[in-house]
């Protein structure tokens, strides 16, 4: 009896400090935001209750749908690009497939430390119509009007951003995988090799299942990070041209702080949460058959 009580007390003493800080800082404002999503408010002055009006507006707002589409693209590149690539890189480093693994590891990590501002500026220097690449092509082909048409294409304008995201954020997952690979005893890989399993088999059939839980956690990180992505896109394109590269978090920022439409902005931030929860539940559904808890 006494023992159980003390065990429970220990349990709470581990969990509660983090929980209290977290609730105080994050949950209260979210409730506030949720309430605001049902009103029409400029951030000051009278509030007008509009019920689901802000949500209804969203579903008639073409900019919102462009943002949603681009957000889904980020989720896809994160979950099916960054995570597998991060895992592969971590495995390659772990298995010491390259010499100077330390050197490569540090360099792969570096992009994530770079500020979005500098990535965007450099990007411009290379790919903008006055940048190096178009200037070079103009020189070679004599076509004075050569520009990177992809940036002005409604369907594909977002692809270059996905490429930068892949370069910049893969290392986040690589670091997490690298740490978790340490949990797997070397004997497992050795035994499999001695039994004649190919490297591919080891990676896919032995290592991947053992990292299942981590893959799931990384997917959660990736999905939530995807919907919140802001800085890089804000610096690279600001959503342009003509909203082609808009994402919901940026649209929410502009709506709230630039257009001072707090009600609609709050509704957008709530919808971000809804989409993340939905995507994570979907991921759970998909990964459950893989036998993960």
């Amino acid at each position: 009896m006494n023992y159980t009580a003390s065990k429970k007390r220990s349990y709470l003493s581990f969990v509660l400090p983090a929980f209290v800080i977290y609730i105080g800082v994050i949950i209260f404002p979210v409730i506030f935001s949720c309430a605001l999503s049902f009103v029409d408010w400029k951030g000051y002055g009278p509030m007008k209750f509009v019920g689901l009006g802000n949500y209804a507006r969203m579903f008639a707002d073409p900019v919102f749908f462009i943002g949603l589409r681009n957000n889904i693209l980020i989720v896809l590149i994160s979950v099916f690009g960054q995570i597998p690539l991060g895992m592969l890189l971590a495995y390659m480093l772990h298995r010491k497939m390259v010499r100077h693994a330390d050197f490569f590891e540090v360099l792969i990590f570096l992009p994530i430390t770079m500020s979005a501002v500098i990535v965007a500026q450099l990007w411009n220097r290379i790919f903008s119509p006055v940048g190096i690449l178009p200037s070079f092509v103009r020189l070679v082909t004599g076509n004075q009007d050569f520009v990177m048409k992809i940036f002005e294409n409604q369907t594909f304008a977002f692809v270059p951003i996905m490429f930068v995201l892949l370069w910049q954020h893969t290392s986040l997952y690589m670091v997490i995988f690298l740490a978790n690979l340490q949990r797997i005893p070397n004997s497992v890989i050795e035994a499999a090799r001695l039994e004649g399993a190919s490297e591919g088999t080891i990676f896919l059939k032995i290592i991947t299942p053992m990292l299942g839980g981590v893959i799931f956690i990384n997917s959660i990180l990736a999905i939530s990070g995807s919907f919140k992505s802001f800085d890089l896109i804000y610096s690279m394109t600001g959503g342009g041209p003509a909203h082609y590269t808009e994402v919901i978090a940026m649209y929410m920022y502009n709506t709230t702080f630039v257009y001072q439409n707090y009600g609609y902005g709050s509704a957008l931030s709530i919808i971000i949460i809804v989409f993340i929860v939905a995507s994570i539940l979907l991921t759970r559904l998909v990964t459950r058959p893989m036998g993960q808890d």
Binding site: F19, I26, M252, S269, I273
Partner: peptide, 26 residues
């Protein structure tokens, strides 16, 4: 303890909140 599921869920929720959404109330 059963409540651990609740705590994990609650903490996961925090991943979904953008800073811009909480900055004014905070």
């Amino acid at each position: 303890y059963k409540s651990r599921k609740f705590f994990i869920g609650a903490f996961s929720l925090g991943l979904m909140i953008t800073m811009h959404a909480v900055i004014v109330p905070l």
